[in-house]
Design a protein around this nucleic acid. Structure first.
Length: 529
RNA sequence: GGCCCGUUCGUCUAGGGGUUAGGACAUCAGAUUUUCAUUCUGGCAACAGGGGUUCGAUUCCCCUACGGGCUACCA
């Protein structure tokens, strides 16, 4: 017998796309978004991208960006992870308007501190028949799963298990009074269709009968993500919810909860972001892939407090936050013009959900490096100074003149991919070469060349204006007088000042080094050749 | 297994019923830079397959394949 399927739509706005139509770029309610990480370890690059999109959307629409710590799993809680997350956001310049560190009108922002909120809502769902008490222990369920691998706590099995659907009211009451551990589970409808309009994916629909009865409130009294995310998004008046695509399958549970709690009209618009994939093979990018392939996955260095293991981050590798954020934005989004370099401000101006792609993107470290190099070349030299000073300090160089450092940066920046490359490219500006690439000089070295450099050094001593062009002039005219090709002398001169075959134009180097230092280096090197 | 999502150069992507299918990274070749890097020029390189719809599909629809995600008292 034909039964028309029950259909229930959760499309909240009669015209869901209207909100984002050009004529109506400002949603009617004040935009409020949240990043809701679990403090269990380092912050993954995908997490930062989620933050970014939240941030951009909030700023674009003049809304609020809140940080909410989802620490409902006590067993996975890691000391220091919350502060680390906040530090990462600070480094990236993506600062929340509200959060545990800055407070706000909806405090507290840690779910562990909101524990008492959740039980009442779970009970409310039990009372309305949309949820039930379940007394099965974790061990019992483990056993069931071992016995049949596809076991689900669902309509197919719930009537054979120990819960308030199968027990009498008196039995349930006495179990509860006796303090028997229990969880509260959602009672998924047997045959309904839940659908909604995802801002990125468009129409998505699910059959409720296929999902299991997710736990809402755990035996320790803490909510699971499913309950907590709905309750807090409601309480914190979240209007748009961004999260990774891995959450799509549990969306129907959340939709149902919004409905059952009576908040359907306030449900946020959902946006399920495409995943960031491993560069080789397939699958979600994980910290392990970074270790294996030799690039960072976390935003900053992370030390596991239990094992002491250090996982390197983008920041410490020498990434500029500007480049890191820029690179992340382009992983799954573009503005349609081909422009690839954006400042945060530009991103805020140009960001639109409509231009986020649906498919996952493989992370390409080479491209990430390219972004950093581009920023290395474009950034204001002064902006780079403090970072470079840090690199110098790490290499035992202190108390150098800022203006000198700034000039050096200007000279070498275009050949640096990372700030951390600075030392390798510019150490000779802060100390004499420790050794010389003599093989580059010796085979063609002659007494005549030696004489040239002695004369050259002498000329430099009386050079009136110490500028690269003048130094070069003296160098070349003397070479001519001595009948030696200038080209034959350039490399030896470079080796004298730098120690190796690298660096900016040699006369620029001499200018920066100064008269005394230049002649000294010539004198010292002459003894080596 | 079931459910959901996805599929344009090696990678990130633009595009969209009629285009020489565009750009970027990587790569290759050349030029410049009397070092190296930068920079510049050029080359290689893609619409997963099959059915429809259509005068015409890479573009719209369906199926298949492939890939991924989820399937915990984790988020």
């Amino acid at each position: 017998m034909f039964q028309p399927p029950k259909y229930e739509s959760f499309t909240l706005n009669a015209h869901p796309f209207l909100i984002f139509a050009p004529s109506m770029t400002t949603p009617s309610k004040k935009v409020r978004v949240r990043f809701a990480p679990s403090p269990t370890g380092g912050l993954h690059l995908g997490g930062v991208r989620t933050v970014l999109f939240n941030y951009l959307f909030a700023r674009r629409h003049g809304g609020d960006f809140v940080l909410r710590i989802e620490d409902t799993d006590r067993t996975r809680y890691v000391e220091g992870a919350e502060q680390y997350i906040i530090d990462c956001l600070t480094w990236c310049g993506l600062n929340p308007d509200e959060g545990p560190h800055v407070g706000g009108p909806f405090a507290p922002y840690r779910q562990s501190e909101r524990k008492e909120n959740y039980r009442a809502y779970a009970e409310q769902l039990v009372n309305s028949g949309h949820a039930y008490y379940a007394f099965d222990t974790a061990e019992e369920l483990d056993q069931l799963r071992r016995a049949s691998p596809n076991f689900q706590y669902s309509q197919a099995t719930r009537y054979g298990l120990r819960n308030s659907l199968t027990l009498t009211g008196e039995e349930v009451q006495s179990l509860l009074q006796a303090g028997t551990p229990y969880v509260i589970r959602i009672r998924m409808p047997e045959d309904e269709t839940v659908s909604f309009e995802d801002m990125i994916r468009g129409f998505v629909s699910f059959e409720t009968g296929l999902s299991d009865d997710k736990v809402l409130l755990k035996a320790d009294g803490m909510p699971t993500y499913h309950l907590a995310v709905v309750v807090d998004d409601y309480l914190m008046k979240i209007t748009h919810a961004f999260r990774g695509e891995e959450w799509l399958p549990s969306a129907p549970v959340h939709l149902l909860l919004w409905e059952y709690l009576g908040w359907k009209a306030d449900m946020p618009q959902w946006a399920h972001l495409p995943l960031i994939l491993k560069p080789d093979g397939n699958g979600k990018l994980s910290k392990r892939d970074g270790d294996r392939l030799g690039f960072p996955v976390y935003a900053m260095n992370w030390t596991d407090p239990k094992t002491g293991d250090l996982t390197r981050g983008f920041r410490e590798l020498g990434f500029l936050p500007e480049a890191f954020v820029n690179m992340l934005a382009l992983l799954g989004w573009n503005d349609g013009t081909g422009q690839e370099i954006f400042t945060l401000e530009e991103l805020v101006q140009k960001f639109s959900i409509a231009r986020i792609s649906k498919s996952g993107a493989k992370f390409d470290f080479e491209k990430a490096k390219w972004f950093n190099h581009e920023w290395m070349k474009r950034l204001d030299v002064g902006r780079l100074t403090s970072d470079v000073l840090k690199v110098l300090d790490e290499n035992g160089v202190q108390g150098v003149d800022d203006a000198y450092v700034t000039k050096v940066i200007g000279l070498v920046r275009e050949r640096l991919t990372f700030v951390s490359d600075f030392w390798g490219q510019a150490s000779f500006f802060f100390g004499r070469p420790a050794s010389y690439d003599v093989n580059a000089v010796k085979p063609k070295w002659t007494a005549q060349k030696k004489a040239f450099f002695e004369l050259f050094s002498h000329s430099l001593a009386s050079l009136e204006s110490w500028h690269a062009v003048n130094i070069e002039l003296v160098f070349k005219s003397l070479a001519e007088t001595e009948a030696i090709k200038a080209g034959e002398l350039m490399l030896p001169f470079r080796i004298m000042l730098v120690g190796g075959k690298f660096g900016p134009h040699v006369f620029e180097i001499a200018e920066l080094l100064g008269r005394h230092e230049t002649t000294e280096r010539i004198r010292i090197a002459l003894a080596e050749f």
